[in-house]
Amino acid sequence: MRRTSLLLGLCGGALLSGCGDDGSGVTTGGQMMYTTHGSVSDGLSPVGDVIAAPGDGVFGVQSGGGVGQIRDGWTVEYQKILVSLGTVTFTTAAQDDIEVAADFVIDLQSLPVGGTLLERTDVRERARKVAFTLPQASSGRTRPLAPYTLEQDAKLMVDGGYAIYVEGTIEKATGMSCRPDVPSDCVPAPLIRFRWGLPHGVAYDDCEWIDSTVANPSVTLTFPAIDWLHTAVGADSPTLRAQWIADADLDRDGETTLDELQAIDAATLLTRRRGYDLSGAIDPIATVYDFLREQTRALGLRSWGRCGSASNL
């Protein structure tokens, strides 16, 4: 295993155009990050950048019948989405592994739309495959991705031992919250809050860029925020629904908690009659919390092209 140390260089704006230079340095918002680019004589290909970017839904998900919209009339707004990124490993055609130790807490909502540069490393060949981890944040290792992540948010992740934290609301003027076991027992619920910190670390492997016609010397990890709205587990699902979040508010106080999700039988709330397919889960889904866990695991599967596997850390 050949390792590279992480020399932090932040680069906002356009995905690559804002990070390019003449080979001697990179201008990053008034700061200069120097790097050594390869040349024809030394056999190095263009620099392999590791970039983090916000994905689908990070800035909210609207209701509607179109692709990427929520079918049951709810609108989702997020106040916070944090992920803990551990390592990123390039595998070249020659089977050389180059590991980048990131260990960042990343606030996805604060990232530039085009992404930001996490690390730059010279590689002799373009990455053929990529692996990366989303581990539990831990003291002494995990740090905030400055200037995009607040120290207090990194502390929240470390104190909770979270791999991902999501906080937001679902809203619908005519929204109702109905008992999972008695669907006819409903009360008005135009707004439901949720704050979910999940400790389940995941390692993603065999990630391949799916469009071979596009030159891709960089690795852009694009994290979405819609997977827990999908009605199918373990597969691409064109249908998004949020009613389950409202129905899981058992005490009807306007907030759906993890304790409430753990108290609900998935077979009662997430039924085929309601459009759900749980057959693609890696681990058993007994409760609605298990459904959230499995859907969160899917967050990284399409972060770079398509990943062949996801395993628990």
Score class of each variant (00 low, 15 high):
Arg126Ala: 06
Glu119Asn: 05
Leu108Glu: 05
Trp304Ile: 10
Gln62Arg: 13
His37Thr: 07
Pro183Ser: 11
Gly64Met: 11
Leu44Ala: 13
Lys129Pro: 01
Ala286Cys: 02
Pro54Glu: 12
Ala53Gly: 09
Gly60Met: 09
Gly66Val: 15
Pro112Gln: 13
Ala52Thr: 07
Ile51His: 00
Leu261Ile: 11
Pro188Phe: 12
His230Asp: 08
Arg306Ile: 07
Leu258Tyr: 02
Ala131Gln: 01
Gly280Cys: 15
Gln152Pro: 05
Cys207Ser: 08
Glu77Lys: 12
Gly73Glu: 10
Gly168Phe: 09
Val123Lys: 02
Val182Gln: 15
Arg3Asn: 09
Thr239His: 01
Val166Met: 14
Leu261Pro: 02
Gly23Thr: 11
Pro147Ala: 04
Tyr165Thr: 10
Arg124Asp: 05
Met33Ile: 11
Ala14Ile: 11
Val105Ser: 03
Cys207Ala: 12
Cys186Met: 09
Thr287Trp: 04
Leu269Asn: 05
Glu77His: 14
Ser311Asp: 08
Met33Gly: 03
Thr35Met: 00
Ala154Gln: 15
Ala127Phe: 03
Ala242Arg: 07
Asp283Phe: 11
Tyr276Asp: 13
Leu198Trp: 06
Pro147Tyr: 03
Ala266Gln: 09
Gly168Tyr: 09
Gly140Glu: 06
Trp304Lys: 03
Pro112Asn: 11
Val100Leu: 01
Val123Thr: 01
Leu85Met: 09
Ala102His: 02
Arg241Lys: 15
Val100Cys: 00
Phe194Gln: 07
Gly280Ile: 14
Gly64Asn: 10
Leu117Lys: 00
Ser39Phe: 08
Asp181Gly: 07
Trp74Cys: 06
Val40Cys: 05
Thr239Glu: 07
Arg71Ile: 09
Val123Arg: 01
Ser237Val: 04
Gly201Asp: 09
Leu270Phe: 06
Gly161Tyr: 07
Tyr204Pro: 02
Asp56Cys: 09
Leu111Glu: 07
Met1Lys: 10
Gly20Pro: 02
Val47Trp: 00
Thr91Tyr: 00
Thr222Arg: 14
Thr220Tyr: 00
Asp249Pro: 03
Glu151Arg: 12
Arg195Lys: 13
Glu125Ile: 00
Val202Ala: 05
Arg241Tyr: 05
Gly201Leu: 04
Val130Pro: 00
Val26Cys: 05
Arg3Val: 10
